[in-house]
Structure formats: C-alpha cells, structure tokens
Simulated scan of single mutants.
Amino acid sequence: MAQDFNRAMREALADAVGFVAGALAGWWLGRQFGIDFIATSEWNTRQLIGLVLIVGGCGVGRFAARRLMLRDRP
C-alpha cells in the first residue's frame, strides 16, 4: 500500500511540475518569436499560435517530467 501511495504521489508531482514548467517554456518560446498570448485580448492567427505553443509545452513538459521522475531506480 505504501508503494502504491508513493508512486501515485510521484506521478502527481511529475504531472504538476511538468505541466507548469512546460507551459512557462511554451510561453517563453512564443515571446522569443514575438508572440505573447497572455498580453493581448485579441484572437488572431498569432495569438492562436501562441496558445498552441503553451498547450504543446504543457504536454511535452508533462511527458518529460514523468520520464525523469518515474524511471525505476535499481
């Protein structure tokens, strides 16, 4: 039971850290290209590209955090 709880807590932490870090990385990448989704209230192609970068960053960050934090240690 303790191992199941420990694994569940590690999964939750990996999801949270990866999601937030990935979103921030996607937002930063968009700002480097001159696309700031958060700063404007318009809905145009540039803003949608910025949103895709943020959402994509969330997914990639979650995947990477899970791979790093949940690998089995010998």
Rank of each mutant, 00 (worst) to 15 (best):
Trp43Arg: 08
Gly56Ile: 00
Phe33Asp: 04
Phe19Lys: 01
Trp43Lys: 07
Leu48Ser: 08
Arg71Asn: 12
Arg31Asn: 09
Phe5Cys: 04
Arg73Phe: 12
Ala23Ile: 13
Arg31Phe: 11
Asp4Leu: 09
Gly22Pro: 02
Ala12Ser: 13
Gly56Val: 01
Arg67Asn: 07
Leu70Asn: 03
Gln3Lys: 10
Leu24Tyr: 14
Ala14Ile: 03
Phe19Trp: 10
Gln32Tyr: 11
Gly22Ile: 00
Gly57Val: 01
Phe33Gln: 06
Gly61His: 00
Leu53Ile: 05
Cys58Trp: 08
Ile49Leu: 11
Ala12Arg: 02
Leu51His: 09
Phe37Met: 10
Arg7Phe: 15
Gln47Trp: 09
Arg46Val: 04
Gly30Trp: 01
Leu53Phe: 13
Val55Ile: 15
Asp72Cys: 02
Phe33Trp: 14
Trp27Met: 04
Asn6Glu: 15
Ser41Gly: 15
Ala65Asn: 03
Asp36His: 05
Ala64Asn: 10
Asn44Cys: 05
Gly50Cys: 03
Arg67His: 07
Val55Thr: 05
Asp72Leu: 05
Ala2Leu: 07
Glu42Met: 05
Ser41Asp: 14
Trp27Ser: 05
Gly34Leu: 03
Gly50Pro: 04
Glu11Lys: 01
Gly26Leu: 00
Ala64Val: 08
Ile54Val: 15
Ile38Glu: 03
Ile49Met: 07
Gly30Met: 01
Arg7Trp: 14
Thr45Lys: 02
Gly61Arg: 00
Thr45Ile: 06
Ala23Tyr: 14
Gly18Tyr: 07
Leu70Gly: 01
Arg71Leu: 05
Ala25Pro: 09
Arg7His: 10
Glu11Asp: 09
Arg46Pro: 06
Glu11Gln: 04
Ala16Trp: 07
Leu53Ser: 02
Ile54Leu: 13
Arg10Asn: 10
Trp27Leu: 10
Ile35Asp: 01
Ala16Gln: 01
Ala23Asn: 04
Gln3Pro: 14
Trp28His: 11
Arg31Cys: 13
Val52His: 02
Leu51Thr: 14
Trp43Asp: 11
Gly57Ser: 03
Glu42Pro: 12
Thr40Val: 15
Val52Lys: 00
Gln32Thr: 14
Ala23Phe: 06
Gln3Thr: 10
Phe63Val: 03
Val52Arg: 00
Asn6Val: 06
Gly59Ile: 10
Leu51Asn: 05
Ile35Ala: 06
Gly57Lys: 00
Ile49Ala: 14
Phe37His: 10
Val60Pro: 06
Leu68Asn: 03
Arg73Tyr: 05
Leu53Cys: 10
Ala65Pro: 07
Ala14Phe: 11
Gln47Glu: 11
Met9Pro: 11
Arg10Ile: 06
Asn6Leu: 12
Ala21Glu: 01
Gly59Ala: 10
Ala39Gly: 06
Trp43Asn: 08
Ala65Asp: 09
Ile35Ser: 01
Ala8Ser: 13
Ala8Lys: 06
Val52Ser: 04
Phe19Arg: 03
Leu48Phe: 09
Arg66Phe: 03
Asp4Phe: 13
Ala16Glu: 01
Asn6Thr: 12
Ala2Gln: 12
Leu48Thr: 08
Arg73Asp: 15
Asp4Cys: 03
Ala39His: 09
Ala14Leu: 05
Arg10Gln: 14
Val52Pro: 02
Ala8Leu: 15
Leu29Met: 14
